[in-house]
Amino acid sequence: MKRTLLPLNALRVFDAAARHLSFTKAADELHVTPAAVGQQIRTLEETLGVVLFRRLTRNLELTPEAERALPALREGFTQIESAVDAMQAGQADKVLTIGAPRAVIAKWLAPRLARLGASAEDRFILVPTDETGSGAARDFSSTNMDLAIIWGAMPAEEELSGKRIAAEELVLVVAADQRDSYGRPADLGEAPLIHYPGHSWQEWFDAAGASHADLDGGLSVADWGLAIDAAAAGYGAARVPRTLVSGDLAAGRVAALFEPTPCDEAFWLVAPPQSWRQPKVKAMVDALMDETGKS
């Protein structure tokens, strides 16, 4: 018999009736009527083409064929229950899988999870994604993520919906002890510049009415987080999202220069519609947004 045609409900009724050797007791266990149990057993016997019970005057007796099949059937139900438990464990209330770029995990997400004071029973699985998180839709299907953080104008994938973490702006930062060296934009004309994919210094210098000796020179790093760390180490100037650098600014590791630049892009908490229906996802988004409002 094909797997898709297995009469699982009727087999469950058969298992109960076989344990009790009584349709009445099986009906009590299953919260149905004895007549419903009898109908399920008759339908199962017709479907399988075998007799499962001998109906005696006061009780039931299993046929040899039914008796031989029961151990394997019960083992099968145990395996199904284990499989269901495994599926539920992956999305249990105490387990939350969040995908985000590495810099976002280090600079924004992990500090907030720490401040939220997770209990020993909570389990967070942080999955590094590509630099902007732009492959989130693909990652949701391959890594069983509950929630992701991406960078962009808005969630681009139709199958995702999101909540913007904050209106974003780009902040120009240097090591705290270098701040007094740069009183005007022109003072950055020969300063070492820190680059990362997707960022252009040209637009900032054009807007500031200043120039630089070598816009292509300096240090190139892989992401926002490394740019912030390089600036904090004293290499030179970096221009990064305020959301990610706010902790380093508050800690005095870096200092901001001049006015920040508003940005059309931002960080978003995104998930498929089915994930937004999970209480644990809603609770985490609310908590992260509340933490963001405090910082």
Rank of each mutant, 00 (worst) to 15 (best):
P197H: 06
K294G: 10
E29M: 06
L11R: 02
I125R: 11
T57W: 15
D122P: 05
K94R: 15
T132L: 12
D290L: 13
P155Y: 00
C263F: 14
L288T: 02
T97Y: 09
A156P: 11
F14H: 05
T57K: 14
D180L: 11
Q274F: 13
K94H: 13
D146T: 04
S141M: 15
A287S: 12
V95C: 10
G99N: 03
E159C: 13
R253N: 10
W201N: 00
E158V: 14
G152T: 03
D248Y: 11
Q40T: 06
G293Q: 09
H212L: 05
N144G: 13
L21I: 08
L215R: 00
P260E: 07
A137C: 10
W276Y: 06
D28S: 12
K94S: 15
L116N: 03
G293K: 08
V50R: 13
G218M: 04
E75R: 14
Q88D: 12
E121M: 12
G198W: 06
V254F: 02
T33F: 07
M284C: 13
W204D: 03
D177G: 10
V245G: 03
R112Y: 07
D223F: 07
P7T: 01
R277T: 14
D180Y: 10
G133F: 01
A186C: 11
A176Q: 08
R54H: 15
W204R: 08
Q79H: 15
R58E: 15
V173N: 01
A233Q: 12
T129Q: 03
V254C: 04
V254N: 00
E67S: 14
K2M: 11
V51F: 13
R55P: 06
L48G: 07
A136G: 02
A233V: 08
A186Y: 06
A191Q: 05
S275L: 09
D216T: 15
P71L: 04
R112D: 02
K25A: 14
S211G: 09
A148G: 06
G49V: 08
S211A: 10
E168L: 01
Q274G: 12
L62T: 05
M284I: 07
P260L: 07
T33K: 08
L109Q: 02
L172Y: 02
A175G: 10
Q40A: 14
F14L: 13
A186E: 12
R277C: 09
V171S: 02
T57C: 14
P34C: 03
L116Y: 08
E65Q: 13
L160K: 02
S22L: 06
V37L: 01
L257V: 05
G49P: 03
F267T: 05
P111G: 06
A208Y: 01
R12S: 14
S141D: 13
L96I: 11
L249V: 00
F53H: 03
L44H: 05
Q278M: 11
E265Y: 12
E45L: 07
F14I: 05
L193S: 01
S141N: 15
